[in-house]
Write a protein that binds this DNA or RNA. Structure first.
Length: 483
RNA sequence: GGGGCGGUAGCUCAGCCGGUCAGAGCAUCGGACUCAUAAUCCGUGGGUCGUGGGUUCAAGUCCCACCCGCCCUACCA
C-alpha cells in the first residue's frame, strides 16, 4: 500500500468548466471521481480540501450570452448556479466552489501571480487568425476544433509569457515525478510535447475584443488576462489567508483532476507559471478520458442528452454515480446510454446489493425475530480484503476496479447464502451464517460509502439494530428496468 | 504530417516484465434453490485475440508495415 494512513492532508481539485452551458455528464464524471477520492481520504482520517468551481471569465461565456440575448452576468450567474447545483443531484461533498468572476480573493490573486511572474512577461505585437471557440490563434482556417464561428483576423499587441525558458526545468521535474502525471501514457505525451520545444505564449487579450469581460492586466487596463491564466490560478487564488500555506505551500499532496483535452495547460503552462512565480507545483495530475453518449461526442451546448441532473432525477443519484464509477474505464472513452445505466444499476444495486441486504434482514427476522446472532462471523475473503483493494485501486485512479472490489462483497455473500442455506440449518449453524452475512452487509455499507454515500447510509441503517432488532426488511434499491 | 491510445467471445471489457492467456460479466440455453426486489446460485455454447509480415523453442503479450476509431500536436513554406 502506497498510501500512509494517518493525518496526511490532501488537496483535490477538478477543472473549472466555463459556463456557456449547463453541465453535462462528462464533467459529472470528473467531479464524481474527485468526490470519491475526497470521501475516501476523509474516512481514512486525512484532512481533505475538495475544490471545484466555474470559469466565468471566458470569452465564450460572453458569446453565449450574446447569442442568447441576455446580459453576460445573468447567463454566467445562471449557469454557474447550475454547476454548483450538482451538489445535490450527484451527492457531492466539495468544500469550496470557486467562481472566477466573484470569488473574493480570485482577482487579487491573479494580479499577484501576474506580478510575481513579471520578469517573464513582455509585450509583443501579434497577428493571426483567432478562434473565439478555442480562445487560441491559428495560421489558417478553419480551426481544428471545427467551431462554427469564422476565424477573425486579429492584429494587436499582447503580453507574452516566456514559456520557452521552462522547457528544461519542466522536463526534469516531470521526469522525476513532480508532478506525477497519470496514466503514464499521458505523462509521455507531455514529455513528447516538451521535447518538441516550447514557444512563448500569449497571456493577454485586448479588453476591447474581450468586451471588457475578464480580469484587467495589472497596470495595463487595455488588456485582459488570458482566460487560461486566469482559470488555472484558481487552484491557489481561492485559498484565502492561512489556507494557502496549509493547502499549497506546505501540503505535500496536491492533486489536479482533468479531462484529456486540457493536459497541456495543467502539465506545462500551469507548472511553468508557478515556477516563474517561485511557488510549489502540484504533485499529482490525473487525466481521465471522455464520456460519449450513444456513440457520439457530448457537446456542451445541446445535442446528445446527457444531463446529469435529469438522469439523477429519473434514475436516482446512486444509479448515476454507480454507472460513472463502475463502468468507465481508467483509460479510454466510455459510451453512455440509459440502457447501460439501467442494466448496471439493476444488476449490481437492485438485484445485487439491495437484494442481498433484503434477504439477509428477512432471514434475521424470520428465524431470529430481528435479533442479530451473537455468533462469531466467518471470515469472508472479498469482504475482508475490500478495504485494501479499494484503497489500492483508488491510489491508481482505477475507479472501476475499486467499485468492482465493493461489488465482490455482494457476490461473495450471495454465494455464501447458497452454500450455507441458513433456512436448512439447525439454530447453531444458522446463527453462524446469519452473523457472517450481517457482518458482510455492514462491511458493504462501509466500503460503499465513498462511491454511493446515500445508498451506503441506507444499507448501514438496514443492518443496524434498534432496541436489539434490525428494522423491518424493505427493498433498498428500486429496479429501474421496465417490466 | 508527427506523437500517443484503443481495435480480444453477440455486447462491455480483464489479460503486468512473452510460455495453462484464450478469460470475466451481461445476454442465450440447461439445471438448482425458495431466505430475497420473477431476485439468487451452478453449468453450457461461442472468439484464426484488427490485417500482413518478422524475432523466438514459444506471441493478444516483443519488432515492422498497413487498416479502422479516438486524443494531442503541426501544417511542410
Amino acid at each position: 500500500m502506497s498510501g500512509v494512513p494517518g493525518r496526511h492532508p490532501m488537496y483535490i481539485t477538478t477543472t473549472i468548466p466555463y459556463v456557456n452551458a449547463r453541465p453535462h455528464l462528462g464533467f459529472a464524471l470528473e467531479i464524481v471521481q474527485a468526490d470519491v477520492l475526497a470521501r475516501h481520504h476523509r474516512r481514512r482520517g486525512e484532512p481533505v480540501r475538495f475544490q471545484t468551481g466555474t470559469d466565468d471569465n471566458s470569452l465564450k461565456n460572453v458569446l453565449a450570452a450574446e447569442a442568447a440575448g441576455v446580459p453576460v452576468r445573468e447567463l454566467v450567474d445562471r449557469n454557474a448556479a447550475a454547476f454548483e447545483g450538482l451538489r445535490g443531484p450527484l451527492d457531492l461533498s466539495f468544500d469550496a466552489f470557486v467562481r472566477t468572476s466573484s470569488h473574493p480573493g480570485h482577482r487579487a490573486g491573479v494580479e499577484r501571480l501576474w506580478r510575481a511572474t513579471a520578469h517573464d512577461l513582455y509585450r509583443r505585437h501579434y497577428e493571426g487568425l483567432y478562434c473565439v471557440g478555442c480562445e487560441a490563434f491559428y495560421q489558417e482556417e478553419p480551426c481544428p476544433e471545427g467551431h462554427p464561428e469564422p476565424l477573425r483576423r486579429v492584429s494587436e499587441e499582447n503580453w507574452f509569457f516566456r514559456l520557452s525558458r521552462y522547457r528544461e526545468p519542466l522536463l526534469d521535474l516531470i521526469r522525476s515525478g513532480t508532478p506525477a502525471i497519470e496514466p503514464v501514457s499521458r505523462r509521455n505525451e507531455v514529455l513528447a510535447f516538451l521535447e518538441s520545444g516550447l514557444e512563448d505564449i500569449s497571456v493577454s487579450r485586448s479588453a476591447e475584443r474581450s468586451r471588457g469581460w475578464g480580469i484587467p492586466v495589472p497596470g495595463d487596463p487595455g488588456q485582459v488576462v488570458y482566460v487560461w491564466w486566469d482559470a488555472l490560478a484558481n487552484y491557489i487564488t481561492a485559498l484565502d489567508g492561512d489556507d494557502y500555506g496549509r493547502w499549497w505551500e506546505r501540503e505535500p499532496r496536491k492533486l489536479h483532476l482533468m479531462g484529456k483535452g486540457v493536459i497541456r495547460f495543467h502539465a506545462v503552462y500551469w507548472p511553468a507559471m508557478l515556477l516563474s512565480a517561485g511557488l510549489p507545483l502540484p504533485t499529482r495530475i490525473f487525466v481521465h478520458d471522455y464520456v460519449t453518449a450513444g456513440g457520439r461526442k457530448i457537446s456542451k451546448s445541446g445535442g446528445a442528452t446527457a444531463d446529469p441532473v435529469a438522469l439523477s432525477a429519473a434514475y436516482g443519484v446512486d444509479a448515476v454515480r454507480w454507472w460513472l464509477l463502475r463502468e468507465v474505464p481508467r483509460v479510454g472513452d466510455a459510451d453512455f446510454t440509459e440502457e447501460r445505466l439501467i442494466a448496471r444499476a439493476d444488476e449490481d444495486l437492485a438485484n445485487g446489493a439491495g437484494n442481498l441486504v433484503n434477504r439477509v434482514v428477512t432471514m434475521v427476522h424470520r428465524f431470529r425475530d430481528g435479533r442479530v446472532p451473537d455468533a462469531r462471523p466467518e471470515p469472508l475473503e472479498a469482504a475482508g480484503r475490500a478495504g485494501e483493494r479499494v484503497h489500492e485501486a483508488l491510489e491508481a485512479f482505477d475507479f472501476r476496479r475499486a467499485a468492482a472490489a465493493v461489488q465482490a462483497i455482494v457476490e461473495e455473500a450471495n454465494q455464501y447464502v447458497e452454500r450455507t442455506r441458513p433456512w436448512k440449518q439447525d439454530p447453531g449453524g444458522r446463527d453462524a451464517s446469519l452473523a457472517t452475512l450481517v457482518h458482510a452487509c455492514r462491511e458493504l455499507a462501509v466500503q460503499l460509502e465513498p462511491f454511493l454515500p446515500t445508498a451506503a447510509r441506507r444499507v448501514a441503517a438496514a443492518v443496524r439494530e434498534e432496541d436489539g432488532r434490525l428494522p423491518r426488511p424493505a427493498p433498498l434499491f428500486p429496479r429501474l428496468g421496465g417490466g
